[in-house]
């Protein structure tokens, strides 16, 4: 997989009818939940929870605390439905709530390992079977090395935004403090830096076409 995609397009171009359908569906589920059928929110859980898991884990929580914080965020959503005027604010609200609670727990002394670096210490599992696995491993090591060059704050931020469903990217990025440009979210310093490191690596490797 090359990161040098020949068709760079602003994020707005990724919009299509499915985004509108998703938005309408979310609005419908929120309305059901407001009417007292909390269970309706459950339909949003599979898509948004992996993002919240990374929010909690990147803040340095243990797996048990992370599970608890993610579940609490969903249950709190039930009592804050009035604050969510837009379907697009659900993901952002959940991220903010999970982050806040994760910080609170960490500062309450439950932290059991250094917050930012623990995942870097754990090397990815090696998958031994396929032949193409070697290429994947190489890419993974390269990405790992590139991430390690970033500040802990950037590592944490990118780990979160990588899990944001695309239609929610704009709102969540804004909630995380990534500046918004005229047509949508900007790349931000962390992603810009990671991209620069990866592109530099590609240009430096002899068997890869640098492209535009």
């Amino acid at each position: 997989m090359t990161v040098d995609d020949p068709r760079p397009a602003p994020v707005g171009a990724g919009r299509d009818a499915r985004w509108d359908e998703r938005r309408a569906r979310t609005a419908g589920l929120l309305a059901e939940a407001r009417a007292g059928r909390t269970e309706a929110l459950g339909e949003l859980v599979p898509e948004l929870s992996p993002m919240l898991w990374q929010v909690a884990r990147s803040a340095g929580l243990t797996a048990a605390d992370a599970e608890d914080v993610v579940q609490q965020a969903w249950l709190r959503l039930v009592t804050h439905l009035d604050q969510l005027s837009q379907p697009s604010s659900v993901a952002s609200w959940l991220v903010t709530t999970t982050r806040r609670e994760a910080w609170r727990r960490r500062s309450a002394g439950r932290r059991q390992f250094p917050a930012e670096q623990d995942w870097l210490a754990a090397q990815p599992d090696q998958d031994p079977d396929a032949a193409e696995q070697a290429v994947l491993d190489e890419e993974r090591r390269e990405l790992w090395a590139a991430l390690a060059q970033l500040s802990p704050r950037c590592q944490q931020l990118l780990r979160i935004v990588a899990f944001v469903p695309r239609p929610d990217y704009d709102a969540v990025a804004a909630g995380l403090g990534i500046p918004r440009g005229s047509v949508g979210p900007t790349r931000g310093r962390c992603l810009a830096k990671l991209r620069a490191i990866l592109l530099e690596g590609e240009e430096g490797s002899p068997d890869e076409q640098p492209g535009g």
């Binding site: 602003p10 994020v11 899990f163 900007t186 790349r187 310093r189 992603l191 830096k193 990671l194 991209r195």
Partner: peptide, 24 residues
């Protein structure tokens, strides 16, 4: 990196983020 931080997110960025997601 700093020079392009103000540019809009594009498809290349989402490819990179996809790789980060896969990693985690």
């Amino acid at each position: 990196g700093l020079a392009t931080a103000n540019q809009p997110v594009d498809e290349t960025d989402f490819v990179i983020l996809g790789r980060v997601r896969q990693l985690f």
